[in-house]
């Protein structure tokens, strides 16, 4: 029990550092996808610093778990985690999205160590994850592939092609994660393009569904990931309700911070809030 409390506390601290890294990489006066990065930050912390088996010093080891950021526009979230894991040099953060930087606007397998898949054209990450999970199974690896998707992204038809295929192939080592922050680039999902109801859709497509009431709450996330470990007959999806911009007072649930700019004042405030 004490161990669990300690683990949660550590992961919460890491999640805060990840958020600081994101702010550092976005800087002042340059657009960055802060909202969707912050909503998923706690899950990414749980995956990279507790759940996933991988080695920062041996990135190619074949038995590693893999993480695919299907919502590739929040690349800065993954970079923030890779910096925290010691895979990407911290000094690269400030160069994000500058010419020649290893940190591109979207994840690029050729440019950034630790990136497993090129994403950014939405709706394709689950298919890539399916391919990886199939290969892991062919190779007899006891390894998982995690794919993080946005709720807006679920409008892409390819997601549902992949969902059908994963159930068809009974890929039990594939875990989808839906960040349901209920906002897309242009407004509330229910008002722009409603992808709900999610639970019933995934179930109908043959997936085991695990719902997380508060996807920014570390104990709930850990519990969901542990439940996903029990999958035996097919794929699992974790649908987590989150708050876009979570952890930043002025950005929470604000559509403008889907891809917003920070003023110097906001930057300083953000760093103070995340101290």
């Amino acid at each position: 029990m004490a161990e669990r409390v300690e683990l949660v506390r550590n992961l919460e601290t890491v999640a805060k550092r990840i958020r600081r890294n994101i702010i550092e990489s976005v800087g002042v006066g340059v657009a960055g996808h802060i909202g969707g990065s912050f909503s998923s930050a706690d899950m990414v912390a749980a995956l990279y610093f507790h759940k996933m088996r991988y080695s920062p010093t041996d990135l190619g080891r074949p038995d590693r778990d893999r993480f695919i950021l299907s919502k590739g526009h929040v690349a800065i979230l993954q970079y923030a985690a890779l910096v925290e894991a010691g895979i990407v040099d911290r000094k690269e953060l400030k160069k994000t999205k500058t010419i020649g930087s290893c940190l591109q606007g979207h994840p690029d397998v050729m440019k950034t160590p630790g990136i497993e898949a090129g994403t950014g054209s939405l709706g394709q990450g689950l298919s890539i994850g399916l391919g990886m999970a199939l290969a892991q199974r062919l190779d007899g690896q006891d390894a998982k592939t995690y794919v993080l998707m946005g709720d807006g992204e679920l409008a892409e038809g390819q997601i549902w092609e992949a969902a059908m295929a994963a159930a068809n192939f009974k890929v039990s080592n594939l875990v989808g994660i839906v960040d349901r922050n209920r906002l897309q680039a242009t407004g509330r999902i229910t008002e722009r393009f409603n992808t709900n109801p999610l639970n019933a859709k995934w179930k109908a497509f043959g997936w085991e569904v695990i719902e997380v009431e508060d996807g920014n709450d570390m104990p709930q996330l850990l519990e969901a990931l542990e439940k996903a470990d029990k999958a035996e007959t097919g794929p699992t999806v974790i649908i987590m309700d989150t708050v876009k911009g979570k952890g930043l007072s002025f950005a929470e649930n604000v559509v403008g911070f889907h891809n917003g700019m920070l003023t110097q004042e906001q930057y300083d405030l953000a760093m103070a809030e995340l101290a």
């Binding site: 898949a117 298919s127 391919g131 295929a165």
Partner: peptide
């Protein structure tokens, strides 16, 4: 065991191949 009938879904087939290639296969 090395053949995947992906159904009438070319988009998913193609990105699934990307994942297989990333994991050492020649799809």
């Amino acid at each position: 065991e090395r053949y995947f009938e992906m159904g009438i879904a070319e988009a998913n087939m193609t990105s699934t191949a990307a994942g297989l290639a990333q994991t050492g296969k020649i799809p």
